[in-house]
Design a protein around this nucleic acid. Structure first.
Lengths: 194, 194
DNA sequence: CTCCACATGTAAAAGGTTACATGATTAG
DNA sequence: CTAATCATGTAACCTTTTACATGTGGAG
């Protein structure tokens, strides 16, 4: 049992562990709509590559709708072996690494001594707006998953993501206050609310 | 002006934009102690590689303490050109991508239908403990940066990280409750507090 | 008729990690 | 004396992205 696949492979296999069969293209959309909020969405070309690898391991099977269907596509399904391997992987995982966060906005704030204060505020404000948009996306996804028994756990992950994004907004707003309190800086365009 | 360096290169250059000169080895420790909380710490071998690239671009200079010092080491300093390029990079950044989060624990929770409920609880509990440890590390780093005027912005990034980790603990605890509420599951080993 | 979504894949390049190799200094 | 820390680097390998190439079907 090849147990040392990269997390991405398990994520793709995981996508197929829920009821139904899907194409690589569909998998990418699923990943964009939910996986990405807590574990990033691979490029479509990588999804195809992972699917081929998983198939070569016997963890998935594919069916090519060749002559029958007008539009040719390859539909993937998880095998029993794949489900077993995935369960073994899911059952392990003690001593997991810490979550990795790559936050471009924080990277710039960290280097704030090199930028104009208003510019920094602008980046953070933009980030807040974007995050609120993502919050809406998560809520939509949550709405779609609601009530479906097989999706109890994805739903928990989504609920976590929802709270996480709400926290991200609060974090950014608190940072805005910290930014305003940096000494040696003109009062700037931010009204000292109160 | 080669403006299309990967964020990692800017992060390493950024490390050198604070007062003082340092070796690649020291840079790695700095990254482990602060950068990693909001933007991951590159492998030491990659730091050396980035330093060589930055030097070839004229963004940093190095001094090899050859025959003089007993222990040979190469000390890096940012150049004016490097500082300029970094400032340009820091001054841009509108339309930044969303932060990328890779959360191994969430990935397993998402696949919770394949694992034993107690196992899931164990992973999350372990994650809470680890996060609390990181919280302590951030507070230590914050203590070291405290009062140093040149570090106002790194301090803001650290403060953000502190709040973020505190939020992470709360998020995980809320998820534990969600996990207990999954239907079709034995009451388990978690006492229904109340 | 044109644009967008569907659908799949290849190839090159970049990014990044791990393992390996080496050696001095310091703390216990 | 021994282990850990300091210190640097190479090479192989894997992961992942980007750009490219191709073609169908439906909506406006």
């Amino acid at each position: 049992m090849a147990d040392d696949l990269p997390p991405t492979a398990w994520a793709v296999l995981g996508l197929l562990s829920f009821p139904g069969e899907r194409t690589g293209y569909e998998l990418k959309k699923w990943a964009d709509a939910s996986l990405r909020f807590f574990y990033w969405s691979p490029a479509i070309s990588q999804i195809y590559a992972e699917l081929r690898r998983l198939e070569s391991l016997g963890y998935v099977t594919s069916l090519h709708s060749g002559a029958e269907e007008p539009r040719a596509k390859r539909t993937y399904a998880i095998t029993e072996e794949g489900r077993g391997a995935l369960a073994v992987w899911a059952g392990g995982g003690q001593g997991l690494g810490a979550p990795v966060l790559k936050h471009p906005v924080l990277l710039r704030v960290w280097l704030g001594h090199l930028a104009a204060p208003e510019h920094l505020r602008g980046l953070v404000t933009e980030h807040v707006a974007r995050t609120k948009g993502e919050l809406k996306e998560v809520r939509d996804a949550l709405g779609r998953a609601d009530g479906v028994e097989a999706w109890a756990h994805p739903q928990i992950a989504l609920r976590w993501s929802e709270r996480r994004l709400a926290a991200e907004v609060e974090l950014a707003e608190a940072m805005l206050d910290d930014l305003d309190a940096v000494p040696g800086q003109p009062p700037g365009n931010s009204p000292t609310q109160g």
